[in-house]
C-alpha cells in the first residue's frame, strides 16, 4: 500500500461512512436558533442558502462559516422570530430554491429553443 499525504479529492464531495449530509444542533445561547452542519458541501450551497434564508421575513439571522478550509464542511446558523423553527425555515428555503431552479431551467430551455428556431442556421453551426 502506498502511503501518501496527497489529499484525496473525492473526499471533497463523497460522504464518509457514517456521515450525514446535514444535521441540526440546537444553539442554546439564543432562543429559536440552530446550527446546521453540512458535510461535503462548500460555499456553492452555503452562500445560496444563507442569502435565500434572509429573504424569509421570519428569519432574524442567517450566516455560515467554513470551520477549516481543508475540510469540505460548513456550518449554517439560523435564528428565527419564533413563528417557525429554524429547521422549518431551512426546509422552506430549500424547497423554494428547488422551485426557483426549476423555473430557471424552464426559462432557459424556452429561451434556448427560441434562439435555435430563430438563428439556427447562422449561429448554430460549428
Amino acid at each position: 500500500m502506498i502511503i501518501t499525504d496527497e489529499e484525496q479529492r473525492f473526499e471533497l464531495f463523497l460522504l464518509g461512512d457514517d456521515e450525514k449530509k446535514c444535521f441540526e444542533t440546537a444553539d442554546t445561547r439564543t432562543p429559536n436558533s440552530s446550527v446546521f452542519t453540512f458535510n461535503k458541501e462548500d460555499h456553492t450551497l452555503a452562500n445560496m442558502l444563507r442569502a435565500h434564508l434572509l429573504k424569509d421575513p421570519h428569519i432574524i439571522f442567517s450566516g455560515y462559516k467554513v470551520p477549516h478550509p481543508l475540510f469540505a464542511k460548513f456550518e449554517l446558523r439560523i435564528q428565527t422570530d419564533g413563528e417557525v423553527t429554524p429547521k422549518e425555515a431551512l426546509l422552506n428555503c430549500c424547497k423554494s430554491l428547488v422551485t426557483d431552479l426549476a423555473i430557471l431551467s424552464r426559462e432557459f430551455t424556452k429561451e434556448y429553443e427560441l434562439r435555435k428556431m430563430v438563428g439556427g442556421d447562422s449561429s448554430g453551426e460549428k
Binding site: 463523497l14 460522504l15 450551497l45 424547497k95 428547488v98
Partner: peptide, 29 residues
C-alpha cells in the same frame, strides 16, 4: 444544485430515524 438541496431536505425530514447505518451504506457520488 437541485440534487444537493434534495439531499438536505431528505436528511432534515427523515433525519434521526434509523440512524446513519440505516440511511447510508457507504460513500457515494
Amino acid at each position: 444544485v437541485q440534487e444537493k438541496l434534495a439531499a438536505v431536505i431528505k436528511d432534515l425530514t427523515d433525519g434521526g430515524s434509523g440512524g446513519a447505518a440505516a440511511d447510508f451504506d457507504g460513500p457515494r457520488s
